[in-house]
Structures are given as C-alpha cells and as structure tokens.
Design a protein around this nucleic acid. Structure first.
Lengths: 195, 195
DNA sequence: TTTAAAAATTGATGCAGGATAAGAAATTAT
DNA sequence: ATAATTTCTTATCCTGCATCAATTTTTAAA
C-alpha cells in the first residue's frame, strides 16, 4: 500500500499507539496530474510525503523557463524549507507529474512526533543529512561534470524516474535544453554501437 | 573573541554549567594556512566550527581542477555530512585559506549537548534547514543564471569573502574559469562607467 | 483508425564561456 | 629596493551547449 505509516514503521524500530494517532491525523490528499501543491510567491505550510505518484519541485526564470530542482517519487519528502521554516514566500513550485497521493505534514508534526518517540529525531536527522549530501553532490556535479556525465549519473541514480518523465524534464533537471539531451543520447548510442 | 562558546550563547537563550563543560571539552585547533582538515578519500570525523580564519571545502576532478563547494569564514560550520554521518570516504577536501582557529565537533557532540539542553535541537534544526536552503538556492542559480548573474549575487551575499580570497577561487565557486571572471568584471565595470 | 497534440530528433547557426599563451600588476620574500 | 612568485588581465582561437526552425516519432483523443 506504500503509506506514510508503513514507511515510518519501516524506518523506526519502536512504535506506539500515540504515534499511530499522530500519523493518522495527518492530512492525506489525492492530487491530480498537473495540480499544484505550492506556487512561487506562496508561503509553504507543509512538508510533503509522496505515498503514490510523482512530484516535481522547480523554479521559473524571467524568460519563463523551468528549472527542476528535484523529482519526488514514492517514499520521498519534498519541502521548500526556506519558505516553511523561515516563513518567506517561496521561490519554487511543487506540482504533480502524475496523479498522486500525498501526505501533508505541518512543521509542528516533527516536534509532536518526536515528543512521543525520541528515536524519531534520529530518523529526521538521517533524512536531513541525506538531503544535504544529495544537494552537495549535485552542486559538485554541476560545477565539475559535462552534460553527458551528468546524464549518465542521472541514469545510474534515478533509472526509475527516467522512465516516468518526458526527456525535456530530465534535461531541465540536468541544466541543459531538450535538444542538447537528445544529442547527448544520440552520441552515447552511436558510441556504444561502434564497439 | 569570537569563540564557539560565545556563538552558542548568542544563539541559545538558555545556558547551564554542564553545557559549558561540554563546550569547553571540545577540541580547538590552531590551523596554518594551506593545512588540511580533511582530504578526499579520508573518513571525516568532525563538524568544524570556524572561530577565526577561513576554510574552503572543494573537490578535485580527474583533470586536477578544483571546484569549491563552500567557503567557511568565522562563525560558520563545515562538514562533509556524507562522510561523517554515513561513514563513507569523503569526496572532498577541507583546507585553510588563512591561519585559522577551528573547533572540532564529534558527531556525538550534538546528541550530548541536546541531552543537557533540549533547545539545542531547535538550533541544530535551524542550522540544518538554513544549510539546505542555501544549497537549494545555489543549485537553482547554477541551473538558471549566467556567470555574470552568479557573480553579482556572490558579491551581494558574500561581500566579505570576496575581499579575502583570490579571484580564481571565486571563479571556482561560481563554476567558471578565472579568465572568464576577469572578463565578467571588466564588462560590468565598463557598463557601469558608460552611464 | 484517423486525427490531433505532444515529445523527440535533426540541422543550421550563434554565443557564452573554455583553453592556451603571454604579459601586466600586485604580493611576498630576499 | 630587487627579485621571485603569485594573481590578474588581455587577446586569439575553440568548443559545448543554446537558439531557432523544421521534421519525424510517439502518444492521446476523437
């Protein structure tokens, strides 16, 4: 079923009825493809947990061009922490790429659940650290790697997402145009063929 | 004096003798310019807090080119969380750009101090969230902005660092060559002059 | 099954920023 | 002060990716 409750249970060895209560009291919403969970300029109120489906977080620049910061498939969290935590208007959009089922977690949820079960803080910490390392490695990749190298590591890291989104969005995530990605793939295919 | 103790006191409204004990038991080290605090391939053991001086965190690619992930001046934390938290060999170097005084915080320090003063968790959380938003915005900037735009926001965001490091390092942080940065600055200067 | 719409490819051309090299300016050491 | 390094600039040429425009292919709708 892939629920938030199951996910938490799988990540925590302890469990309690009070925790179940808290989790079941969370808002779960059914989202249609192309629906927004957050818009640029709004203040974000939630951390989103994806039970089913796929979301994207992205910005839109002055020329109207989209830049994808992250994809969030099943079992992932997305949030604009700048907006949520620091109460600023968001710079980003969060939108469904497929019909999705999403749990909305208020900022206070973390504290509440941590009170009930202290080991949850440890999980929260692991998630934050994991998030940071991904962002850091992505920055490093944008600084160091060519478009082709970035594409190859995307394929390695997110083979599943590759199959679920149009190539133009992969291109946007990689920081190149769809045309360039098409050429990168062509080159790779040709080189693979010629040996 | 700019000590870690003072920094914590300024960020937390509570304080206790036990906390002072913990903080004073931390390892503080005097680092010379160009000394390493972490090398690629090593496992990182500490979060570093800069009391005095300036550090850089960077990677070195196959061609031997440096890519700066962050600068850490006074009152900043740097850590390779991937290595520290997940016990993996680090992908990055951390090195002093000036003679520095650095506090070494073991991973367990956070937990220990949190036990003594629960409000520390709140501070830790704020720091992590702040770190995440910076990384996120930097990714967005690398995806969306031209070299010139990135330079301008660097100047806005880190005017102090600009004056403390050679331009080549700013270029490395921005993801361009020193030559390109020199041209960007020339163009800006000319345009400013002509109006 | 045909038609329309969306996504991906391909080609032609342009440009931002890279590579290389050489000299000027600024620091640091002697 | 002078020499030796390091840093910064400038010029030329080059390349990776962008832009624009036209097809082709795939997917979805009628």
């Amino acid at each position: 079923m892939n629920t938030f409750k199951e996910y938490i249970a799988s990540q925590l060895n302890s469990k309690s009825p009070q925790m179940d209560d808290l989790i079941e009291n969370c808002n779960t919403r059914q989202i249609l493809k192309d629906e927004f969970l957050l818009r640029q300029g709004e203040q974000s109120r939630y951390i989103f947990f994806v039970e089913q489906g796929l979301l994207k977080q992205y910005s839109v620049d002055e020329k109207g061009k989209e830049h994808i910061l992250m994809f969030a498939p099943e079992k992932w969290f997305v949030a604009d922490r700048e907006s949520l935590y620091f109460k600023r208007p968001s710079l980003y959009f969060i939108k469904a790429l497929e019909d999705s089922r999403v749990v909305l977690l208020e900022e206070s949820f973390i504290n509440k659940i941590a009170e009930v079960d202290h080991s949850f803080l440890e999980l929260n910490n692991r998630l934050l650290n994991n998030h940071i390392l991904h962002l850091q490695n992505r920055i490093n990749s944008l600084l160091s790697d060519s478009a082709e190298e970035r594409y190859l590591s995307f394929v390695q890291t997110y083979p599943d997402i590759l199959l679920r989104v149009p190539q133009a969005m992969v291109a946007s995530y990689l920081g190149i145009t769809p045309e360039s990605l098409s050429r990168v793939r062509k080159d790779l295919a040709e080189r693979n063929f010629h040996k």
